[in-house]
Simulated assay, not measured.
Amino acid sequence: MICEAKGRTIEKGVDTDIAYGQLLRRMTSQTPDTRYALVVPSSSAEAATRVPAHVRRLLRIDVFEVTDDDQVCRLTD
């Protein structure tokens, strides 16, 4: 799994879009078992799921949320 992790930010949408771009540049593996993930704090979870679920599935991108009490959970649509 190759991840792009982001912290808390004021510009949630813009910073999440940048994170997706950074993750896309890391997509160099053509093996189907390679997974990718965007890891964001709860405050950015809504922005991270603006990319439609079917697009994320095609690109093998999962989104993980880190809560304020440091729990990590995979977001599902």
Rank of each mutant, 00 (worst) to 15 (best):
S44A: 15
R26H: 11
R35C: 05
Q22S: 12
T49K: 11
D33A: 06
L59F: 05
R60P: 00
S29F: 05
S42K: 14
T34S: 02
T31F: 02
P52C: 01
S42E: 15
M27G: 04
T28R: 12
A45T: 14
A19V: 09
V51R: 13
S44N: 09
A45D: 07
R26W: 03
R35P: 00
Q30A: 02
P32Q: 11
A48C: 10
R35E: 13
Y20A: 08
L38E: 10
L58C: 06
Q22Y: 04
L58V: 07
Q22H: 07
T49I: 15
T28W: 01
A19C: 08
A37F: 04
P41K: 03
P41S: 07
V51D: 01
E46D: 15
Q30F: 00
P52M: 02
L58N: 11
H54F: 10
S43P: 02
T28L: 12
S43L: 11
Y36C: 11
R60I: 00
T31R: 10
M27E: 06
L24C: 12
A47K: 05
A45F: 06
L59D: 01
A37M: 08
Q30G: 02
V39M: 11
M27A: 06
R60Y: 00
V51G: 00
S43K: 04
A48D: 09
R25S: 14
T49W: 05
P32G: 07
T34G: 00
S42C: 08
L58I: 10
Y20G: 04
P41F: 04
R25F: 11
E46G: 08
E46T: 15
A45P: 06
Q22N: 14
V55D: 07
L38P: 06
P52S: 08
R56H: 01
S42D: 14
T31A: 10
S44V: 10
I61A: 01
V55G: 00
R50H: 12
T49G: 01
L23T: 05
P52G: 01
Y36Q: 07
T28E: 09
A45V: 15
Q22A: 09
R50I: 09
L59G: 02
I61S: 01
L24E: 12
V51P: 01
H54I: 11
T34E: 10
R25W: 10
R26Y: 14
R35A: 09
A53C: 09
A47P: 04
A53D: 15
A37H: 03
Y20V: 08
R57A: 11
Y36R: 07
A47G: 05
Q30T: 04
A53S: 13
L24R: 04
L38W: 06
V51S: 02
R57L: 09
